[in-house]
Write a protein that binds this DNA or RNA. Structure first.
Lengths: 218, 218
DNA sequence: GATGGTTACTAACCGATGGTCATTAATCAA
DNA sequence: TTGATTAATGACCATCGGTTAGTAACCATC
């Protein structure tokens, strides 16, 4: 059945999403106004509120698909078994960093501020599941490199690893350089960070086992 | 000479600063309005604009002294030569993290977003010098632990170290827990992160020297 | 094919925001 | 006492995110 109304509604919704996506990406969430989005989408700013609860809901609707895509890309790297575990971890990390820098205007919302409020509305909101899924992917890639680490020790290592990745993104989120320029200039530093962390984690495991085997009492 | 005008002006300015400081710390920069600050300071909101160019200038005026204090605390730890270099590094890191969590509503402004705009006005703005100074303190504390690293290698290590610290702060900036609760719950994780990084940096140095001495060609 | 309800949309409006400006009133040098 | 300087203000501005009453197109039903 051809329902003209539904078609028009869906088209308006798409127009709003694509307009908002372009504007957010270029100028950031706060700097873009609802009226601006409406203007670019070719409708009244009130119409946006028919399709989305508020400005933030618009951002979330916009961010879900790209987060999904990121997750898929990270998953596919994790399955590349012709790569070494270390190369997989570096690839996943680079992918994550690159994505966050590309979507830098939304990153803070994905991973920080607004998750609390969202939690109130729906405890197991998809975006939070996605976020946890991304962390688990990093953790998995890390475990492949550290097969002697499990349980709490692995979780702590994954946390520390995440801190570093998160800090990289945070450091360059507000840079003027394009994501590609940043990745070109810094990807070797990022790889080195992964190397250092892996060396540290492994050395730490060795030290712990020595402590246990050596039976240090004091 | 007792100039009543100057005294009153200075007092009003202090009132504004202390009111804004309390409000920003409690509810965050964006959530606090100029009228609110004015109300608490006992003046009209217009008066604030006499003393400060805009809301952001108010924040910067507010942040300078606490950043100064942080720097002094970090410097004093660096001079505690009865502590081991590792303990000094951990102490400095903890101090930095704790400060950033205590001033979490201003942290993003200190270290991220608005520095660009500020740069336009005054290239060598004090706050940027301060920020670089803080980084150099971290770098110094790190060098004390890694006396075999110098120059570019040390700089890269310091960057990676900063990434991690920065990521820790970023991860918990929007937490609901108090800074003290967070430090209690996580300070051992933070210490462990420092341990891991140090182990990694050292191991990396060893590997490089082996490569050089061993003369690996391919 | 007119009727009545639903749907997509909008113009006008709301309170509140950051910021400006003409004006007032106190203070100061002469 | 006078005239300039200064701190402080109240009225005002454009704009923001968001609401609401109302319009017009659409759709199923009689």
């Amino acid at each position: 059945m051809l329902r003209k109304q539904e078609l028009r509604s869906a088209e308006t919704r798409r127009d709003i999403l694509s307009a908002a996506g372009a504007l957010f990406a270029k100028r950031g969430f706060d700097a873009v106004t609802m009226r601006e989005i409406a203007g670019k989408a070719g409708c009244s700013h009130t119409t946006i509120y028919i399709h989305f609860k508020d400005k933030e809901a618009l951002l979330h609707a916009l961010s879900m698909p790209s987060l999904q895509e990121l997750k898929q890309r990270m998953e596919s790297i994790l399955l590349h078994h012709d790569l070494s575990p270390e190369e997989r971890l570096k690839g996943i990390s680079r992918e994550f960093i690159h994505f966050c820098l590309q979507n830098r205007t939304m990153y803070t919302i994905f991973f920080e501020a607004k998750s609390v409020r969202v939690d109130e509305e729906r405890p197991a909101l998809p975006i939070n599941q996605l976020r946890n899924g991304l962390f688990r992917l990093l953790q998995q890639a890390l475990q492949d490199c550290l097969d002697r680490q499990r349980g709490d020790l692995l979780l702590t290592s994954a946390r520390i690893f995440f801190f570093t990745i998160h800090g990289i993104v945070g450091t360059y989120t507000y840079s003027e350089e394009t994501p590609e320029a940043l990745m070109d200039r810094l990807s070797s530093t990022f790889d080195e960070a992964v190397d250092v962390l892996l060396l540290g984690f492994r050395q730490q495991t060795v030290l712990r086992q020595q402590t246990i085997q050596g039976g240090t009492i004091l």
